[in-house]
Amino acid sequence: MIRDLFTKKKKYATIPSEQAKQEVPEGLMTKCPQCKSIIYFKELKKTLLVCDHCEYHHRLSSTERIEMTLDEGSFQEFDKNMVAKDPLNFPDYKEKSALDRKNTGLNEAVVTGSGTISGMEVIIGVMDPRFRMGSMGSVVGEKMCRAIKIAADERKPFIMFAASGGARMQEGVFSLMQMAKTSTALNLLHEKGILFISIMTHPTTGGVSASFASLGDINLAEPKALIGFAGRRIIEQTIRQKLPDDFQTSEFLLDHGQLDQVVPRKNMKSTLTNILEIHQTS
């Protein structure tokens, strides 16, 4: 036994037990989808969910987006309790929608309301990619149109954050009608000379990119966001050409005149403040 005290013991690498793995609190760390770095979630929140290593902009919930954009305590939500019907009796649609409501705490894929940015009153809409991938169905379109009408009646700027996979297939033509419905509603703002700022985030695709998301008086986007209508593979097969590597990114659209500015998340609120101040009316 005395010899054991002076004998160097060999150390072997061990694989953590399942119990040890479970002791690590859920949500403590996350992996960046772009550079694969492991990041403490607490540190990631300090940078507004932007990777310190590669500047990848992680997706935000509607709640996180509103907290980062509006002045603290200023948000007042509209039409919170609106819930989608199942007009086509689409298989499992009701069940999947109910599961999304449970998992997200939301009733639909967009949150609308009023608030202030640096003390200036605005009407805002924020799509949430956690709910049916932010797809636009009848309720999303209706909530947007109601918010636009309030903006028109109260003569307040309207700001929309898009994050969507497009029109909601489970509602068929009812979802496609929302493209025309929201676009027509936005014309109210145009006729009254009221500012509409559209901000496209990752991803903004399909019927959303082909309707209201592209109709802003000022169109902004976060860096490297996927923005487009049809998928890359479909387009390449249709035109029989190889597309650029950066095709359908924010930077590509900016270079080709379809965006006014690509704005990093840390600068978004200050950029919106500057735009709103320039367009302030007495």
Results as ranks from 00 to 15, higher is better:
residue 30 T to Y: 05
residue 98 A to L: 07
residue 259 L to T: 11
residue 19 Q to H: 01
residue 43 E to F: 08
residue 260 D to K: 05
residue 75 F to E: 08
residue 251 E to K: 11
residue 3 R to Q: 14
residue 107 N to S: 14
residue 160 M to E: 05
residue 37 S to K: 06
residue 13 A to E: 13
residue 280 Q to Y: 08
residue 129 P to T: 03
residue 230 A to T: 13
residue 135 S to N: 13
residue 184 T to M: 05
residue 226 L to N: 01
residue 217 D to M: 00
residue 97 S to I: 15
residue 4 D to Q: 09
residue 22 Q to V: 11
residue 18 E to V: 15
residue 156 K to N: 07
residue 85 K to N: 12
residue 111 V to E: 11
residue 14 T to Y: 15
residue 75 F to N: 10
residue 230 A to G: 06
residue 32 C to S: 01
residue 81 N to R: 08
residue 183 S to V: 04
residue 204 T to F: 02
residue 42 K to Y: 12
residue 230 A to L: 12
residue 119 G to M: 05
residue 24 V to K: 00
residue 26 E to K: 10
residue 272 L to Y: 05
residue 270 S to G: 05
residue 156 K to M: 11
residue 202 H to A: 04
residue 227 I to S: 01
residue 52 D to K: 04
residue 201 T to G: 00
residue 94 K to V: 07
residue 3 R to W: 13
residue 202 H to I: 07
residue 244 P to D: 13
residue 228 G to S: 06
residue 200 M to H: 09
residue 276 L to Q: 03
residue 267 N to E: 13
residue 73 G to K: 09
residue 259 L to P: 14
residue 179 M to Q: 13
residue 204 T to G: 02
residue 213 A to E: 14
residue 72 E to T: 15
residue 176 L to W: 14
residue 225 A to T: 12
residue 144 M to K: 01
residue 116 T to K: 15
residue 221 A to T: 15
residue 247 F to G: 00
residue 282 S to E: 15
residue 250 S to V: 00
residue 169 M to K: 04
residue 245 D to F: 09
residue 261 Q to M: 09
residue 168 R to K: 14
residue 42 K to Q: 12
residue 263 V to P: 13
residue 141 G to F: 07
residue 282 S to N: 13
residue 109 A to V: 06
residue 7 T to I: 12
residue 108 E to V: 05
residue 160 M to W: 04
residue 63 T to H: 08
residue 173 V to F: 13
residue 185 A to C: 02
residue 54 C to Q: 00
residue 186 L to T: 07
residue 274 N to C: 01
residue 240 R to G: 14
residue 158 F to T: 08
residue 127 M to S: 04
residue 120 M to Y: 07
residue 24 V to N: 02
residue 3 R to K: 14
residue 44 L to N: 08
residue 85 K to W: 15
residue 39 I to F: 05
residue 139 V to Y: 02
residue 93 Y to Q: 09
residue 138 S to A: 06
residue 255 D to W: 15
residue 206 G to V: 01
